[in-house]
Amino acid sequence: MTDNMMLARAWQIQSMLIGYPDENLHERADLLRQAAASLPGSVGGPLLRFLDHLAAAAPAELAAEYVATFDHRKRCCLYLTYYAHGDTRNRGMALLELKQTYAVAGLKLTDEELPDHLAVVLEYAAIDPGAGLALLVAHRAGLELLRLALHDATSPWAGILDAISATLPPLIGDQRTAVARLAAQGPPAEQVGLTPYALPHPEGVPR
């Protein structure tokens, strides 16, 4: 398996596991387990542990836990441009650029999907690993803050972020500074100029 094939497989699995745990995810759990087992331990191990949690948890309880984690915790937002731009007009432009990038790669979103949701970003990365890697690295500070927040919350989804981190280059000085600044100051907070998208509340719940 080439590096790009490994990355594409990892990101496709991670895309599914970081999404809402619906019936489709439970039905595909065995296939996802087989695919995760073929990955390097630093990437596949956390995914297999999450799949163990998926198998043991009652579906309704896991769904409720997902909502409580990602829809009601500001620091656990899955919309990556929020970390960089907050609720500002710059975020609206970033979303439009993402959607245009995806269209070129053949990834078409439904009306309900925002292009910066982590599951969507990972799906795109699996389609075009080179460009996908660059996109994930560009959002590394937000990803790291999300990873740390999930660990603080002892969330089972923390392992998914560990696996994503394991596919990326190590944090360097400027990235560490960006993570520290983001943790201390939070995203920008301008509340105007957000068209053409109706952006979600920071906790992930549309208003």
Rank of each mutant, 00 (worst) to 15 (best):
A131S: 14
V137F: 03
A149E: 14
I127L: 15
S155W: 08
A125S: 04
L148A: 14
A166M: 12
D128W: 00
L148P: 01
T154S: 11
S165A: 15
D128I: 08
V137C: 05
P156W: 11
G159S: 12
A125C: 02
P156V: 04
E123Q: 15
A134G: 07
H151Q: 14
P156F: 12
A166T: 06
D162R: 08
H139L: 04
H151C: 01
R147L: 11
H151A: 10
G130L: 08
G132F: 01
R140T: 01
A166E: 05
A126P: 02
I160V: 14
A138R: 13
E123A: 11
L146P: 03
I160Q: 07
P156K: 13
A125P: 01
L145W: 01
A158G: 13
I164R: 00
R147F: 06
L148S: 05
D152F: 05
A153K: 05
S155E: 08
T154N: 15
Y124T: 02
R140K: 07
E123V: 04
A126W: 01
L148H: 12
W157N: 03
L146M: 09
S155P: 12
L143N: 15
A126L: 06
L143E: 07
L146E: 06
T154M: 03
Y124P: 07
A158L: 08
H139I: 02
A141C: 13
G130A: 14
G142T: 05
D128N: 15
A138Y: 11
P156E: 11
A134D: 14
D128A: 08
H151K: 02
A141N: 08
L161Y: 05
L146R: 04
A158S: 14
D162V: 10
L136G: 06
A166P: 09
S155Q: 05
A138S: 15
D152Q: 09
L135N: 05
L148W: 10
L146Q: 13
L146K: 03
L148Q: 14
Y124S: 09
H151V: 13
P156Q: 13
A125H: 02
S165M: 11
L122C: 03
H139N: 10
L133Q: 10
L122V: 09
D128L: 05
Y124D: 01
A131P: 03
T154A: 06
L146G: 00
V137K: 08
D128C: 04
A134S: 12
S155F: 13
L135E: 07
E144W: 04
V137Y: 12
I164T: 15
E144M: 09
A126Y: 01
A138E: 15
W157F: 14
L122E: 14
I164Y: 00
A125Q: 00
E123R: 12
A125T: 02
A138T: 00
A163G: 09
L136M: 03
L161T: 09
S155G: 05
L150M: 11
A138V: 10
L161F: 08
V137G: 10
